[in-house]
Amino acid sequence: MTTTELEQSASVPHAKPAPSRKTFGGVRIYDHVVLWFGVFLMMAPLVVAFTTSSFDHVLIHRQGMQFGWGDQFSQTYSTVLNQQGGFTGEVTGWLMTQNSFILGIGFAVGKIVISMLAAYAIVYFRFPFATLAFWIIFMTLLLPLEVRILPSYEVVQQLGLLNTYTGLILPLIASATGTFFFRQFFKSVPNELLEAARIDGANAWRFLIDILVPLSKTMMAAIFIIMFVVGWNQYLWPTLMTTDETYFTLVRGIKQVMQNMIGADIPKYNEALAMAMLAMIPPVAVILIFQRMFIKGLVEQEK
């Protein structure tokens, strides 16, 4: 063995020091305390809402929120899902869930498609006033739905789209945020990729479908997460747009449960809370599912 070899073999243990994990180091305990405090703040109301939903509404009315486990769980949840409620008695929890899904997915997918196409045009095509067009789109951030709700309603009404899924989704899918995200992403795609594709005989459409869309998967997942949750939680616009109860979404249903029982009767708090719990599951599921893809995309840098 030569000297260098000796040195090398001697230095091997030092090359990869085992990562030291001081589980009870002061810093880590502090980190965990902060973390648990955050978890408590976020989760405690949910837990209380969940436990309360398993009790009888009369008991809740009398004693307030409950921490234990009541005996009404299965009955309450099956009522919420299956009972024909509302004024006309045509709407069930299942139907509202379905409507919420249509709104959430339509909203998210529509936003992704529209903003991707807009960003594609702005970044890759030379047309007059492209920058101006972008900034006009960007400026719509200053005009949220609440500001333009009357003209929007007027337009949708004149198009005869009240009480339709199209009317519910279409006016909401233009997205300045999405366009901005996609624009920034497209600008970071190396120009040579476009040139290589041009030499490979890809036209504008093929370049979008074959190259940009697959490259944007992680962007799309991120925007889908955000937009699905936003779409799912839409309240004001559906309230205005739909008077037909078969178009009601879960978020509106929660209020409906409370409202219908106002009178001599005691409001069915348990059912409202159960519906709130149910309304929470899909957005959480979407985040959990797409989050993995999102992180995977961040780790595997593809550009």
């Binding site: 190396p190 040579e192 040139e195 030499i199 005989g201 890809a202 074959d210 190259i211 490259l215």
Partner: peptide, 18 residues
């Protein structure tokens, strides 16, 4: 470019990453 019967090799390779 596609109709010119040329082929180009780029500095940063410009391979389609996906």
């Amino acid at each position: 470019p596609a109709d010119r019967n040329i082929a180009m090799v780029f500095q940063n390779y410009a391979l389609y990453p996906h």
